[in-house]
Lab assay of single mutants.
Amino acid sequence: MSRVPSPPPPAEMSSGPVAESWCYTQIKVVKFSYMWTINNFSFCREEMGEVIKSSTFSSGANDKLKWCLRVNPKGLDEESKDYLSLYLLLVSCPKSEVRAKFKFSILNAKGEETKAMESQRAYRFVQGKDWGFKKFIRRDFLLDEANGLLPDDKLTLFCEVSVVQDSVNISGQNTMNMVKVPECRLADELGGLWENSRFTDCCLCVAGQEFQAHKAILAARSPVFSAMFEHEMEESKKNRVEINDVEPEVFKEMMCFIYTGKAPNLDKMADDLLAAADKYALERLKVMCEDALCSNLSVENAAEILILADLHSADQLKTQAVDFINYHASDVLETSGWKSMVVSHPHLVAEAYRSLASAQCPFLGPPRKRLKQS
């Protein structure tokens, strides 16, 4: 649940008159999402009104509101027999009622949201009550392989729920002597030191190019640089560091992050930047690179990204790559990247197969709970 924001200063709310007192009302909304995959969808019983329910879910471990999704594969009634019906059901509720908006969509073979439908307002739910769409999607369109909505005969539904909580009022009075504290510009100011090479005390040599930097900042941000300058190493004695395995453009992006906490060109060089972040123990930059690479996972590059993640101990990226390969196994196994990995990294192939087997055979063990970014 997000923290209630402070109200904007009255002088910034309007260029008009300023009242002596004010009130700011925040209506709290808890948002969460749920993904439900139905394997072997074409084998569902086709009687009209037949119901399939998901397991229950909530916004978190401490949330007492429990929900589930309900599907009628062949419609709810005679009117909707040519459609799939989809509903959000409130299973248990400690209150007399709650209000919530919802959005349903289908994830296609690429994991993209399609055929989205959402409620136009927050509906009133009581325990045992459901709301949804009797005519969510035509069955003939859903079952047509050309539309790519049932890869490997799996129907994957994605649901986003927004639950309306209580409202909170914050009130106060205006004073004539309003003090406005300026925003912190530390990142910009440190970035200026790097860009202008002011007050530098060490030189970093990268592929024949020299960059002036500040030992204190490098040591504070990177345990690797800290070790170089702290001990009686040649880098500490000469205040000069030779860097041979990072390209200059990648190095500059890494230094921008060290000084400012930002990497504006990360998406263009996420793979190389991940390697640099791993070498210099820049954990936050490493996770930022993992996130960017996750966003660009595809059938063509899944094997290469899995190898990269394994090489640099990028655990979150590795998990996402394995899950992606499992979901698109029939396509990924035909790529040149996968065939190369079979020869060069057989242990990763074995890991992917083990994960695929456990996903398809849940009876082999208890269900695993899916539970950071600093």
Rank of each mutant, 00 (worst) to 15 (best):
A61G: 12
N108L: 15
N147Y: 15
E334F: 09
A116V: 04
Y280D: 00
M288D: 02
G128M: 15
K237T: 05
G261A: 13
P366V: 10
V30W: 13
E189I: 09
S336D: 12
R370W: 01
S222E: 00
A302R: 00
A277S: 05
I27G: 14
G16P: 07
N174W: 03
L88K: 00
F251D: 00
E20T: 06
C294E: 09
F229M: 15
S330D: 08
P182F: 03
M117D: 12
K66H: 10
K215R: 11
I258M: 12
S197W: 15
V168D: 05
V71T: 14
F141P: 13
Q212S: 12
R124E: 12
N39V: 04
E47K: 03
R221D: 08
E189R: 09
C68L: 05
G49T: 04
D188M: 05
L333N: 07
N301H: 05
K31Y: 02
T25M: 12
Q360S: 13
P5S: 08
K101P: 11
K74W: 11
T175L: 02
C184H: 01
V29N: 08
P10V: 06
T156P: 13
V98I: 14
I106L: 08
S226V: 13
C289R: 00
D272W: 08
L317A: 13
M255P: 00
P248C: 05
L297H: 00
V71M: 01
M13H: 09
R368V: 06
P151I: 01
D63R: 10
N244P: 07
T175I: 05
C93K: 07
L86Y: 08
V163K: 14
R240L: 10
S105L: 11
S336R: 12
S54I: 01
V71C: 10
E230G: 10
P94V: 03
S340T: 09
T260E: 08
K66W: 03
S33C: 11
G111D: 12
W131F: 00
T156V: 08
A219D: 13
F225L: 07
P151R: 07
D310Y: 05
L371N: 15
C44A: 13
V164D: 09
L157T: 09
G365F: 15
V51C: 08
M1S: 00
W338C: 01
K95D: 12
G208R: 09
F324H: 12
I217V: 13
G208H: 14
A321N: 03
M178I: 07
D245P: 06
S96K: 03
R139A: 05
F136M: 07
L308K: 03
V343F: 01
T156W: 11
Q212G: 15
T56Q: 07
K95I: 05
D82A: 05
D188Q: 07
V342Q: 10
